[in-house]
Simulated scan of single mutants.
Amino acid sequence: MSRLDSMLRRLTAQRDGLNWAAEAISDVAGDVLDLGLGNGRTYDHLREVLAERRIWVIDRVLQCHPSCVPPEENFLQGEAEPMLARLAEGGHRLALAHYDLGFGVKEKDVAEAAKLSPALSQVMATGGLIISGQPLVGFTEVDGPAGIPEGRYMFYRAG
């Protein structure tokens, strides 16, 4: 598979997963988190499909497209673990989290996701969903929407 085809498959899976999750959390109270802003495409989509929810963003640096800059009060700049702790200490609970952190080295990305899983667990609402490109630990894996190739995106429910 070409890199272009792989990218298109990943982005389609991401969009379809987010749309599915937005409907699936309709009865779960809480905010939304985009963990890893990047250039802001996912954040922009979340603003559109979950406009009624507060959307938190965590990233090391703010370097997204100018049209995708989150409000200052919703952007937590820094390493993920202390920023997740800050959300937890503030009493915030998440109905949906999109985990999109990575270094681009699979072994390193998997290790980081496992390391951050307990901190993410601390802010998830009971019944909340996590959509992730990396395997997480301590959550119940659930089937996402039909048509997403196995392993392309993972879907988890918080206990």
Rank of each mutant, 00 (worst) to 15 (best):
Q63Y: 08
E48N: 10
Q63I: 15
D143W: 02
V61P: 00
W56Q: 02
V49R: 01
V105T: 11
L35W: 02
L84K: 03
Y99L: 09
L136T: 07
V110E: 01
D59M: 03
G102S: 02
A13H: 01
L84H: 05
A80D: 00
L50E: 01
D143Q: 15
E73V: 12
V142F: 00
H65S: 09
G138S: 07
G102I: 09
G78S: 06
E150V: 15
C64A: 13
P66S: 07
G104N: 06
N39S: 12
Q77D: 02
L35D: 01
G90L: 08
Q77C: 08
A111T: 14
S67I: 10
L8I: 12
D100N: 13
F75H: 03
A111Q: 07
Q63D: 13
Q122V: 08
M7K: 14
R9A: 14
P149L: 12
G147L: 13
L4S: 06
Y43I: 11
V142A: 03
P135A: 08
L116S: 04
E89P: 03
G144Y: 00
V57I: 09
D34C: 11
L4Q: 11
L8T: 13
Y156P: 01
K106A: 14
G38Y: 07
D59S: 10
D5Q: 15
L46F: 01
A88K: 05
L46Y: 02
E107V: 14
R47S: 07
I131W: 00
M83D: 00
L37E: 05
T42P: 01
E72N: 05
A119Q: 06
T42S: 12
L46E: 03
L96G: 04
G40V: 10
Q134E: 13
E52Y: 05
L129R: 04
L96T: 04
G138A: 10
V49W: 01
E150H: 12
V110M: 05
L35G: 00
L8S: 06
G147K: 13
D34I: 12
F139W: 03
I55M: 02
G102M: 05
V28M: 03
G159C: 07
S6W: 10
A95Q: 02
Y156H: 05
D44F: 11
W20N: 00
P71S: 12
G38K: 08
E73W: 04
D143L: 12
Y43H: 05
F155Q: 00
P70E: 03
P70M: 04
R10P: 02
G127D: 06
V123L: 03
D31Y: 09
L37T: 09
C64G: 06
K106L: 15
R93K: 11
L120A: 04
